[in-house]
């Protein structure tokens, strides 16, 4: 990882976009999540121990995406220039750390993903109710049949049997590049190109919550009922968004996901017990 480049973009008076790249790339995305983490930690520490007036005091919200980190701040509390200087320092520290780790070659790649870091205790990350993770989440999915009406299409389109499609879909570990579109909707990267399939020409008006789909070489699932054009191959009974829970989101940006095939009976059992992992 020799590319140290990043740049600051401006999205209005109250947002700095730290752009690390313009493509979908696990290493670029890794930097986004790492910067989000250290920025949040630095910010929390300063707020608690130092109080206002420090460089990160005005930072209010961080939004990691595929390739950039949006830093929302209060322009009446902190100047853009001050924040940019501070972020630059943090990125340089981060790059040194990443490069140091790389020379030791402790990386164990699965589908081009850096290993998850262990986090001890609940950090105050994006906010206090959504605890950060870098956790790996195994999501049970009932494939095909009424839950996955497009599995047949994907099988025909790819020339693979339905069993092979499921086998490939459950074999890989996916990275949560970012969340967006709907609350808790993960953009997952790392799908095997062999099961890529185009979107529906006419989107469905109603896709049930939990539906697992494929769109091009992307995969993901709908945390709530929604219209949508993805090819639906299965459904999970797990709730990915529960606004009344202490932690409303199953997944956080940067998490890892793997799917596990289950039968209808197990699906119903999990659903009846409240859709919890």
């Amino acid at each position: 990882m020799s590319n140290r480049e990043f740049r600051f973009l401006r999205m209005g008076e109250s947002c700095i976009v730290v752009e690390f790249g313009t493509s979908i790339d696990p290493e670029v995305n890794e930097r986004v999540h790492r910067l989000a983490r250290i920025l949040w930690e630095a910010r929390s520490v300063q707020n608690v121990h130092v109080g206002e007036g420090t460089e990160l005091a005005g930072v209010q919200e961080l939004v990691p995406t595929y390739r950039s980190l949006a830093v929302y701040f209060d322009p009446l509390k902190v100047q853009r220039k001050t924040l940019e200087e501070r972020i630059t320092t943090l990125i340089h520290e981060l790059v040194r750390e990443i490069e140091g780790a790389e020379t030791e070659k402790t990386r164990k790649d699965t589908c081009g993903i850096l290993p998850p870091q262990d986090t001890q205790g609940p950090l105050r990350y994006y906010n206090s109710r959504a605890v950060p993770s870098r956790k790996k989440v195994i999501i049970p999915v009932c494939y095909g049949g009424e839950y996955g009406p497009d599995l047949e299409f994907v099988s025909q389109y790819t020339g693979l049997s339905e069993e092979e499609v499921v086998k490939i879909h459950t074999a890989c570990t996916y990275r949560v590049y970012m969340l967006g579109f709907l609350p808790g909707f993960p953009y997952l990267g790392g799908m095997d190109e062999r099961i890529a399939a185009p979107r529906l020409e006419t989107p469905r008006t109603r896709i049930p919550a939990g539906s697992v789909g494929i769109a091009g070489s992307q995969t993901g699932f709908y945390p709530m009922e929604s219209p949508g054009g993805w090819r639906i191959i299965g459904r999970t009974p797990i709730k990915a968004f529960d606004p009344f829970s202490d932690n409303p989101f199953l997944l956080a940006p940067g998490d890892l996901v793997q799917f596990r095939a289950i039968g209808q009976e197990e699906y119903q059992k999990i659903e009846e017990s409240g859709g919890r992992l």
């Binding site: 209010q60 994006y126 906010n127 969340l179 709907l182 609350p183 808790g184 989101f249």
Partner: peptide
């Protein structure tokens, strides 16, 4: 409802 944009809200 600020603070949840990282989660798509």
């Amino acid at each position: 409802r600020w603070g949840y944009q990282a989660f798509g809200v």
